[in-house]
Structure formats: C-alpha cells, structure tokens
Design a protein around this nucleic acid. Structure first.
Lengths: 227, 227
DNA sequence: AATTATTTTTAGACAAGCCTAAAATATTAT
DNA sequence: ATAATATTTTAGGCTTGTCTAAAAATAATT
C-alpha cells in the first residue's frame, strides 16, 4: 500500500481536471486543454505535470500530453466522489438550488476525512447520482455510468424521453432550465426539428410546448422511455 | 460597508488565534504567545502581523503585541462560529465522538458560504453550545458566554455541580473523560481534596466514586446546581 | 520537403508564507 | 542604573504555485 502524503488543493484540482478531460475512453490530455480548463497558463501546467509525474500520479512525457496513473486516477475519483456527494447534500439537505452548489462543492471536495464523507454518503442514503445526474463514485471508486443516455440534440422526432443528466458547467444553463421547469426526470416529447437554426420544438410535461436551441439540447442527456 | 476580499486560511487562523489568546478581557497578544499556539516561529508571526496590520484587521505596534480591530474581530468570530457549528454537526448528525471533531472542523471552518453555514445552523436547530460546551456565536456575532461557570478545580467540598464545558485542546483529555463516562451535563459531587497532589475525590453520577487529578479538574468547567 | 503556424517547454521573476541567524529592543535581576 | 536575559524584529533564503517572454518541438500548409 503506497500511502500518498496529502496533496495540495492545486494538485488535487489538476488530477480532477485531467480525469474529466480524459473522458471515459481515457484519451491523453494536452497541456493547452488543461490550461484552458484550469484558467491558467500552459507554462504553469508544464511545471505541475512534471511534479505530478515525479509523484507517479500522472504519466507525462514532454510534448506528448499526459494521463493519470492508477494511483492518480484513484485520487481523482475520490475527489469527484466528494464533490458530487457534497452537491447532493447541499441540494437534498440544505435546499440549495442545482445552480448554487458548484462553487461551494469546489471547496468542500478538498476536505480530508473519510469518516466525514462516508457519513455524508450515509445520511444521504448512498445516492447514485448528484443533482445534475452525474454518477457518484462509491467508496471503492466504482462509477456506475448510465450506458443508455443520449444527447437530447440527437434524438429522433416523436421520441419520448426522460432527462437523466445536464451539464453542470454553465450557471446560465442551469438557471434557464429552472425557469422553464426542466429538471432531472422531466418527460419530453420531440415534436419538430427546425432546419434553419437546428433548434427543436418539444412538449415538456408540466410546461407545455416550447422550443429549445441546439446549444441547450446539446447539454441535456436523456434516455428513451417506453410507453 | 468595507467589503473584505477573501482572506487566506493562514490569515484566518491568525485572527482566530489572536481572538482566543486575547480572551474575554481583550488583553494584548504577544508574538511568542501566538508563535507557540500556531506552532510557528516568532519571525513568521511578525511578518504576518505586519500584513494584517496593513489590512486593518489587527492593531499592531512593533514590540508592543497586537489586538484585533473591530473588523478583525468580526471575522474571527465568524470563523469560530463556523468551527463550532461544524463540530456540532459532526457529533449530532454524523455520530462523531467529541474527540474526533477538531481536525475536521479546522478544515471546514474555512469554507466560504454564508448560505451553507446558516443552513447547517438551521438543521441543527440553532444550537447555543458546541460538543465541548463552548458557546456558538450567532449569525450577528453575538456570543452568549455562560457567566456562572467555574473550574471544577476551584469548587468547595460537598458542592454539587454539573459539567458545562471541557477544554477541547487535548485529545487525551477528551478520550479520558469518555472512558470515565464524564460528559457535558454529568452531575458531580465533590467529596474530598487531597492536599498532597491537589487531586479531588468526587462522586460522578452514573459512574460512582473516583479521583480526578488537579490537571484534569483544571480543564473542566461546571456550574452549581441547587438541591 | 520546406515553411509557417501552433503547441509546449524553458528561463527567469514574483507573492505568500514559512524558516534560520543575527540585530534590536524590552524586561528582569543585581 | 547597569548588566544579563528574554522577546521581538530584520535580513536573507526556501518552496509552492503562479506569471511573461523567449526558445524548442510538433503539426499544418503549401
């Protein structure tokens, strides 16, 4: 068991972001890609990748991008677990809106205490997804990805679907979805595709017919419902 | 309204410790005193006091010690409020022992979100004291000190008292008190004082007669109970 | 294949927060 | 009051994590 001495918040943020950019198929992550996400400069990224490389948390070869090692991935997943559990706690227990949780969870994800996060997991009754529908890794780091989800922007006319996940990156999107009463679990029927701007006309259960821009539809995942 | 741009965790820790060392009568705090509590060197303290002085959070004159300004005190109290609310949350909601909360609360006290800490206050039903009996400052920074408390070490023979506060500084003390089943609210009768080592013999409701060293008795606050 | 454009790395600098060692000031004891 | 002691500050240095500007490597284009 290689015990990892506590990482700085900066290091943890790098690992988390590499995990996200790497995606489910674990592609290599570029220096510039990381720099953009972390709102930092490429030179800073290079410095940190060297350090994380020395610590065997990422594999890094000059000019070749980086990827997480097993050890780095394990830590990244644990941070993501904490982030998503805290978001769930804020929404379920403290009545935060799904648009209010991100910044606070970014702070809380760095708190070091297994007993604390497992206690939060327990009082939430071991939730499988966070308020945006993202899967919450379990105590052992297993992530239960929903295989059957598709982008709303890619559904065929007259399909009936249920919202299972929305992008948590944009505050504006989350607030807009709130305003049209579109939540996780919302039922949607696709009525029409407008060729001109690629928007779609839908029937949203509980809020009648409305039109969603291509950009909005690209940030909503749904699953088909038999009926 | 002078809006204070977010402070670093180091700065917050200095303000908190100055508040504690300053005590209820707001005495000036020495550089060495701070250094010891913060487990740091006097030279580091001097550096930081200059900085906090520039920010008008402490009044500091070379070689004369320091004290908090109104602004600094307000921030210190808010951090203490967060610390004590989190400790209460850990004990009341997540079944932590009173000896397990300190380190985690030291981290959680730096989380910045009024909505979060006020939400925690709410689900705890606005507690007045933390798990060690320390008063929890309210939202406006008011602290309800228990005037009538005295040190157990200073009580007269045959008084009957109730434990209202214990020092949270020592893990060993808290664990020892656990082991003899002495908690907040425990009822104690003082039976005898042993001159030789200044220990006291007491009757502890629920755990019979036992002897407490001077040092232990100096870390327990009690109030007298009539009857 | 050579040139241009893009990406990434290196080199050197800076702020925060800490350190050690030496100097300055304050306090205590004679 | 002065010498000895203790406390505090200054000076200079180190690490972490960031930055800018310049150099090097890779990728794209003609």
């Amino acid at each position: 068991m290689t015990k990892v001495s506590a990482l700085s918040q900066a290091e943890e943020n790098y690992l988390k972001e590499i995990f996200h950019l790497s995606g489910q198929d674990k592609i290599k992550v570029s220096t510039n890609g990381l720099a953009e996400k972390l709102e930092s400069k490429a030179s800073s990224i290079t410095d940190m990748l060297k350090k994380l490389g020395d610590k065997k948390l990422v594999s890094y070869e000059k000019y070749k991008g980086c990827s997480l090692t097993k050890k780095g991935e394990k830590i990244a997943i644990h941070i993501i677990r904490k982030h998503r559990l805290w978001e769930t706690f804020l929404v379920n227990k403290l009545n935060f809106g799904w648009d209010e949780v991100h910044d606070v969870a970014e702070q809380l994800e760095h708190i070091q205490s297994l007993k604390l996060i497992n206690g939060i997991d327990h009082i939430l009754n071991y939730p499988k997804v966070d308020p945006h529908g993202d899967p919450i890794p379990d105590k052992d780091g297993n992530i239960d990805y929903l295989e059957s989800k598709v982008l709303l922007s890619e559904t065929a006319i007259s399909s009936k679907v249920e919202v299972v996940q929305v992008s948590e990156d944009s505050l504006d999107l989350l607030q807009y979805l709130d305003s049209i009463k579109l939540n996780l679990g919302s039922k949607i029927e696709i009525l029409e595709r407008v060729a001109f701007d690629e928007s779609i006309r839908v029937k949203l259960e509980g809020n009648g017919e409305l039109s969603l821009s291509k950009k909005v539809a690209e940030n909503i995942y749904v699953k088909f419902i038999q009926k």
